[in-house]
Amino acid sequence: MDSATGLCYETYGDRANPPLLLIMGIGTQLNGWDRGFVDGLAGAGFFVIRYDHRDVGLSRRSDGTPDLAAIRRGDLRTLPYTLDDLAADAVGLLDALGISRVHLLGASMGGMVAQLVAITYPERVLSLCSLMSSTGDRSVGQAHPATMELMRRPAPATREEVVEAAVERSRVLAGSGFPFDEDAARSRAAVAYDRAHDPAGRLRQQAAAIASPDRTVALRGLRVPTLVVHGSDDRLIDVSGGRATANAVPGALLEVVDGMGHGIVPGAWSQIIAAIRHNAARATGDNR
């Protein structure tokens, strides 16, 4: 835990290597980045940092219960913070670690936050990878109806119910091109519950994502090497969101992983890591 930012973080690899900051999605703790994937990134030559956003895991907590319906209507009076605030948190963590410039990898909502770091703090960014994310344009990247129905189910109450609901979500969101590992999904859900289960914090993060405006115009102004990675079978954020992101950023590379859903499956790790490494190699300047 960093005392200045109130954010819990972990680092992997040689600090002499170029830093890579991993930014996760709504309600997902730092261990949502599978350790095997993290080790693969470190082995590819990065100094890897993963952390808990505010309101998740072991990081600091906010207060209040947002009115999601009102926020969707544009009434932001109950909005506790924005994705811009989460982007500022990420930069604050870099400051605390003494890192001036960084490669960014953001997944889902974390992709949106990573985009905002690149938009707002371009001098801090060496390269950007937006993974299974979107631009904020509501005409693209929308969830499939069956997925929305699943997400709107009443919140489970007990540890067992929470874990089983997480396994069911993982199964629904898994793509058709890779085997679904139920035991691994159940283990991840149990570890996450026991480490820090906080549904209220997830709601506050969800509110920030709902209130976030379309970033398309701002993305067109980016001049940082950018990679967009998306699964062809993503049923939570449709692949159209990834395509729109790549179309918005000048010179962006698009890597569509055939058969991958909303998740970073082990069978795609080598492809994704190779694409990230290739994009990072397009960056110039001080890697520290």
Rank of each mutant, 00 (worst) to 15 (best):
I99W: 01
H103A: 02
L104A: 02
G106W: 02
G110C: 02
G111S: 10
G111V: 06
Q115T: 05
L116K: 13
L116H: 03
V117S: 01
V117A: 01
A118Y: 10
A118L: 04
A118C: 09
P122W: 08
P122F: 04
P122I: 02
L126S: 08
L126G: 03
S127Y: 11
L128M: 04
L128K: 03
C129W: 04
S130V: 15
L131I: 02
L131T: 05
L131K: 03
M132R: 01
S134L: 15
S134W: 14
G136W: 09
D137N: 11
V140W: 09
G141W: 10
Q142R: 15
Q142L: 08
P145R: 13
M148Y: 04
E149V: 12
M151I: 09
R152N: 14
P154Q: 06
A155P: 09
P156T: 07
E160Q: 13
E161V: 02
E161I: 04
V163E: 05
E164R: 13
E164Q: 15
A165L: 05
A165N: 11
E168R: 07
R169V: 09
R169M: 11
R169H: 11
S170M: 10
V172F: 09
L173N: 11
L173T: 11
L173G: 07
S176F: 10
D181M: 12
D183S: 09
D183L: 09
D183A: 14
D183W: 04
A184E: 10
A185P: 01
R186G: 00
R186W: 00
R188S: 13
A189L: 08
A192C: 05
Y193L: 06
A196D: 15
A196W: 03
D198Y: 15
A200T: 10
R202Y: 14
L203F: 05
R204F: 15
R204Y: 14
Q205C: 08
A208W: 10
A209E: 08
A209F: 11
I210W: 07
I210S: 07
S212E: 05
P213A: 10
D214V: 12
R215I: 00
T216D: 05
R220S: 09
L222E: 07
R223I: 02
V224D: 08
P225V: 03
T226C: 00
T226G: 00
L227H: 01
L227G: 01
V228E: 13
V229F: 10
S232E: 04
S232G: 07
